[in-house]
């Protein structure tokens, strides 16, 4: 494992820790899209089916279990915790799941590496992850007030895939020179979706102002 991949994983992990910290410490999930969080649960459930079929490393298994456990617990807090669920911006979080999930599934049926259940679901999870942030970005744009934890959460979540892109370039040159179009292009799309957010996040940080996205 190279340093970019590790940095990507740690950024991803840190983003989730920040989100859980916000929810648990402030007993609030304002500004967080339940739609996006539910899509991540689907992403992890469909991608990590190989937990049952092959062992890669202790690190790999542990991280997969952590991502599954934390994403499910975030959704649990937002849906069922008696205090947290009242802070959920339901009226503003209107993006439809199937609007993203169905096209991704159809695309995975059409474009995949191998036509097996595990491979198609893995491909679906890659496509879905690329666009799963959209409900969250829409919600942020509608929120007049983005708190620091939410801003940092989205920033780290975007930075993680950007670091993976660097990791893939590095792996291409240092390992087997194999081309992996499905994850590479999806990762590129995923990172590009954050471009606008990154711009306003860095600008607000430089000017020491509160983060606000233009409507």
């Amino acid at each position: 494992m190279n340093v970019f991949r590790l940095a990507g994983d740690m950024t991803h992990l840190l983003s989730i820790i920040i989100l859980l910290l916000k929810i648990r410490a402030t007993k609030s999930c304002t500004g967080i899209s339940l739609k996006t969080q539910e899509l991540y649960v689907i992403v992890f459930l469909t991608r990590y089916l190989d937990l049952f079929t092959k062992y890669i490393s202790f690190y790999n298994t542990t991280m997969k279990l952590v991502f599954l456990g934390t994403s499910i617990s975030i959704v649990w807090y937002m849906r069922y915790h008696k205090v947290v669920k009242q802070t959920y911006n339901k009226d503003q979080d209107t993006f439809r799941h199937y609007f993203l999930a169905i096209p991704c599934f159809l695309l995975a049926l059409l474009i995949h590496h191998e036509f097996t259940v595990i491979e198609v679901l893995w491909t679906f999870s890659i496509y879905l992850e690329a666009v799963a942030i959209l409900p969250q970005l829409v919600l942020l744009q509608r929120s007049r007030n983005i708190d620091n934890l939410t801003g940092n959460y989205v920033f780290l979540l975007g930075a993680y895939r950007a670091l993976y892109l660097v990791n893939w370039v590095y792996r291409y040159f240092t390992e087997n020179h194999l081309v992996r179009w499905i994850p590479w292009l999806s990762g590129l799309v995923q990172t590009t979706l954050y471009a606008d957010f990154f711009y306003y996040y860095i600008k607000s940080w430089k000017n020491n102002e509160k983060l606000q996205l233009p409507a």
Binding site: R5, H12, M63, F67, E114, Y164, W168, N176, R180
Partner: peptide, 10 residues
């Protein structure tokens, strides 16, 4: 051949 070397990623 391994279907994808990125399968060891998360």
């Amino acid at each position: 051949e391994e279907p994808s070397s990125v399968k060891d990623e998360l």
